[in-house]
């Protein structure tokens, strides 16, 4: 039974990371209807900036965490300004391909640095021995990562529900012309959406980097695996992203916990999200919390 609870706990940890990573994607999609395929690269960039600031520059890790969030905030904002602002109103394939191109450019830039090929790990700053509760163990990094994740998700929910900027973002996602007519600067909202997505990506990158170690391939793979999560949650819902993230984390951990090794299977944890995604898309195309779009000819 403790094996079961162990899997539940690790599923929750993985799921909350997925939720945080998915959050950035949802933020961008919600306001500007752009599916950001470069999200994984921004996550990786955030993690590497934190690592660089901590080890080479020598800033305490907490402050470099904040600093990298600020840097990616402006980085993502300038990405939006330079590349995506021109593509407002273009067909969806162009927008998708621009983000894929961006991902490729960031790949190239990161491969120029040692981070592209080598493995690093954050200097330990939390107690090393895992916390044990009735046979279920959880490491301090996982626990702290999960707590930070939930604080950030709570903060973003508050931001969207209560703050003026958040409300204007929701207004833009609902109706661009309508929000223009009440004096909301739509391009500025797009920029802010990207910036907040960059911020959350940096946070996700740091937490993932602390748990799994800094490897570029693992980090930027999160940008792809996060798509099943957001589709399951229904592309434009923050609550959906959180719920779907945790569901996906649990599914993945259960798959690799119970299926791997039996019947000669292995690596099912990697493929399960996509199988679930295809099934969901066939039966409930708009996800758990997505909005049904009504089309008119």
């Amino acid at each position: 039974m403790s094996y079961f609870f162990q899997i539940v706990v690790s599923g929750m940890v993985v799921g909350s990371i997925y939720a945080l990573a998915a959050l950035g994607l949802v933020l961008v999609y919600k306001s500007s209807r752009v599916a950001n395929f470069a999200h994984g690269q921004i996550i990786a960039a955030g993690a590497f900036i934190t690592f660089y600031l901590t080890t080479t520059v020598g800033i305490p890790i907490f402050f470099s965490f904040l600093a990298s969030m600020v840097i990616t905030f402006f980085l993502a904002m300038s990405v939006e300004r330079i590349f995506l602002r021109r593509l407002i109103g273009e067909p969806i394939i162009s927008v998708i391909m621009v983000t894929i191109g961006l991902a490729s450019i960031i790949d190239g830039l990161i491969y120029l640095t040692p981070f592209g090929t080598e493995n690093f790990s954050f200097p330990p700053f939390l107690p090393q021995d895992p916390l044990s509760l009735g046979g279920v163990s959880i490491s301090w990094t996982q626990l702290v990562g999960m707590i930070i994740t939930f604080i950030m998700i709570g903060g973003f929910s508050w931001f969207f529900k209560k703050s003026t900027v958040g409300i204007s973002m929701r207004a833009v996602s609902d109706d661009q012309f309508g929000s223009m007519s009440v004096g909301i600067s739509v391009p500025r909202v797009f920029g802010l959406a990207w910036a907040t997505a960059g911020l959350s990506a940096a946070a996700a990158g740091c937490i993932i980097g602390n748990i799994t170690g800094l490897n570029f391939d693992t980090l930027h793979a999160f940008g792809i695996v996060v798509f099943p999560v957001v589709i399951l949650g229904g592309l434009d819902s923050i609550l959906g992203a959180v719920v779907a993230g945790i569901i996906m984390g649990l599914i993945q951990q259960f798959a690799s916990g119970y299926l791997d090794g039996n019947w000669g299977l292995n690596g099912t944890g990697d493929v399960m999200p996509y199988v679930i995604l295809l099934i969901i898309l066939l039966f409930k195309p708009h996800g758990l919390f997505g909005i049904h779009e009504i089309e008119r000819v």
């Binding site: 191109g101 991902a103 450019i105 790949d107 190239g108």
Partner: peptide, 10 residues
């Protein structure tokens, strides 16, 4: 390779 590839697409 990825850099020029991405740049050309963009």
């Amino acid at each position: 390779k990825p850099f020029t590839f991405g740049l050309v697409i963009v």
